[in-house]
Design a protein around this nucleic acid. Structure first.
Lengths: 135, 135
DNA sequence: CAAACTGTAACAAATTTAATTACAATATAA
DNA sequence: TTATATTGTAATTAAATTTGTTACAGTTTG
């Protein structure tokens, strides 16, 4: 169970709903019933990718670094770096077998195509769109 | 690290390359350096979905249940039932928060869309196509 | 200078996946 | 008919990953 994408999307939704305000990891964690440190870990990824900004010190917190129309769910997906959708084999196929020798490259190519399909789909949805679904 | 899709695809590739022959879990496991019981577990999923057939007893083993042109990688993906590509949150968002109250439904809908995009992509590739990439 | 934050590291707990062992059931062949 | 090789499956252990927790240094404000 990996909830990193869900956490990141949840935070961005809150930031989008309360523009201008700096939200603390404690506050955000309370909205999703999750540990504040885990929130800060996801925020680091979003900050490295330029999607949010953070301010330290008293009155510190997080805010969007871009207008919500400019942030797509593909950006979020890339930022959080989930494990590949098709999984990842850890076995080393037998190189003496003609299939085993080549299948790794073909599976990698396929995995790339699937990741591209996911990103294509997610790139059509901005955080603005996502938040507009809410009542 | 989840290699279930890779194992299933590897087995189907071997079955496709050696039509008519019954391949044992031991033989197949040798080609991919993995435990034979793990192979049999994946084969069960493929058999339940009607992609392969198995024969018990001495001289038993596995074979394709359909022509390889009729088996798509989407069939394989559905058979192995990987965890969702966007992950799965285990937290229960705070229902007192307007965002927390609704986000679960919106994230579920999004996850469905992404799974559909993956399946759409994979449904364009048959095991026959995949195997034809090999030398 | 005290208070409330972020940023991180380190470690424990929980969950998931893979490997291993064991054995019943089945089918073939000698 | 009996030994053998296989699938089918359960149970257990080992390994890897994710989440939760604690701790604390660094930063900014009042």
């Amino acid at each position: 169970m990996n909830g990193q994408f869900q956490i990141a999307t949840h935070v961005l939704t809150l930031l989008c709903k309360q523009p201008g305000e700096l939200l603390s990891s404690e506050y955000v964690a309370g909205s999703m019933n999750v540990n504040p440190v885990l929130v800060r870990k996801e925020m680091r990824k979003l900050r490295v990718c330029g999607l949010i900004e953070s301010k330290e010190g008293k009155t510190g917190g997080y805010s969007l670094a871009l207008p919500p129309q400019k942030i797509t769910l593909a950006d979020v997906y890339k930022a959080v770096k989930l494990p590949p959708a098709l999984g990842q084999a850890k076995n080393k196929p037998n190189p003496a077998c003609p299939v085993g020798k080549q299948i790794g490259a073909h599976l990698d190519h396929l995995a790339d195509d699937v990741e591209a399909a996911i990103i294509k789909k997610l790139s059509t949805i901005t955080i603005f769109d996502f938040v507009n679904q809410f009542d």
